[in-house]
Simulated assay, not measured.
Amino acid sequence: MGRSRWAWPAMCSCIFLTCLQDNKSTPPFNEADVSEKPKSFIFPSKRVNPKMSFFCNCSNLSTSFCLLILPFFFTFIHATTFEIQNSCPYTIWAAAVPGGGRQLDQGQTWNLSVSSNITGRIWGRTKCSFDEAGRGSCESGGCGGLLECQEYGSPPNTIAEYTLNQSNKTDLFDVSLVDGFNLPMEFSPTSDGCRGANCTGDINGPCPNELRDPGGCNNPCTVFKNSQYCCDSGSCGPTTYSEFFKDRCPNAYSYPEDDSTSLFTCSTGSNYRVVFCP
């Protein structure tokens, strides 16, 4: 699974190198992003080529036999499926990195598959307009003016974050308000025995005036850009603003180091559901 390496029998020594992130949908790594994500998450240090390449040295066996058994390699690659559903009474434009994006009318679902050993985000965009070339703008969550996102969305946006296949075959996931809030969200495994996260409280209505945005409610880091709220110079704690978010969404990240009540796990190999306006 994920960045897999599979050894064929000794008669045919094969080395497989898999690079499972897509250049089209995975943004360049920006160290500044790390401070915006849960510290327990593991982030890629560089982009990788999305193409799978392999080298097979069949010195002791015919090339034809190697080609015969090669297809069985693909049975060992596991893809995690995210069922992304719009339950809002209006159209949203779902976004995912990796994955791209698409328009979802009320009740529509997008089934997105990604490979393991990968970190990603899923979020919703509101009041978007795109031309036939997939270029346009959104009131919240826009990603560089593209329908098919290649970079993370602009605040404010409610985010489903995940890192797959970590130590002890565990997935890490959360709902984050570190980039603010624009849409209610539920993020949960479809496997039995794993608890999910959500943020369904009323945030946009009572949002403090200084955090208000036409598309939602900003996190104070976005507005004030200082260490107290962004946690970019060592450890930090909750603030009056983070408590505003936490009171309304108790199991979502309200500031970058809010791990103890906001980071969830499930066994690697699980599939997940992201619902907007659950």
Rank of each mutant, 00 (worst) to 15 (best):
S270V: 06
P238Q: 12
V223Q: 04
R135S: 13
N251Y: 00
G216I: 03
C207R: 00
Y152H: 09
T63A: 14
S233Q: 15
S45M: 13
N60E: 15
P256K: 01
N198T: 09
E210S: 12
N271M: 05
N204A: 07
V275R: 00
F74P: 06
L68M: 14
S59V: 15
N23M: 15
S25N: 08
L172A: 05
S25W: 04
V223C: 03
F82C: 02
N60F: 10
C12D: 11
G101F: 01
N168C: 10
Q21G: 07
G101A: 08
Y152G: 08
A79H: 11
S35E: 13
C194D: 04
W110Q: 08
W110V: 03
S53D: 15
T91N: 08
T163A: 11
L146Y: 07
R195T: 15
T126V: 10
F72L: 15
W93Q: 01
I69G: 03
S45Q: 15
F16N: 12
R121Q: 07
F43T: 14
F29I: 15
S53N: 15
P9Q: 10
Q85D: 09
T265G: 02
S260I: 11
D33H: 08
L68W: 13
N168W: 10
S87G: 08
E151A: 12
G201F: 02
R212I: 07
L67K: 15
S235T: 14
P156M: 03
L263T: 10
F276V: 04
L17M: 14
G124I: 00
G193K: 08
W123R: 00
T81V: 12
V178A: 04
N57T: 12
Y229A: 04
Y241M: 09
T91V: 12
C19A: 15
P278T: 05
N57C: 09
R102W: 04
G196C: 08
P155T: 07
P220I: 01
C14G: 11
N209A: 14
C56G: 09
T26W: 02
S188G: 06
F264N: 02
K51H: 14
C217R: 00
C249Q: 02
V274R: 01
C58F: 11
R135A: 14
N218G: 03
T261Y: 11
D247F: 09
E148K: 10
R135Q: 14
L112S: 01
P155R: 01
C199E: 00
T265C: 06
T222L: 03
C138R: 02
S116Q: 15
P189W: 05
Q85Y: 09
K127G: 00
A79I: 09
A96M: 06
P250A: 06
C56A: 13
S13R: 12
K46F: 13
N117H: 11
P71S: 08
F43Q: 13
N57Y: 11
I15C: 09
E210L: 10
G196T: 06
Y90F: 14
C128P: 02
W6D: 12
W110K: 06
T126N: 04
K225W: 05
L177V: 05
A160M: 05
N204F: 00
T63S: 13
V48L: 13
S242A: 10
T239H: 02
S115H: 12
R47E: 11
V223L: 06
M52V: 14
R273M: 08
L211T: 03
N251E: 10
I77N: 06
M52R: 10
T222F: 05
F224G: 00
C236R: 01
L172E: 05
F65C: 13
A10Y: 10
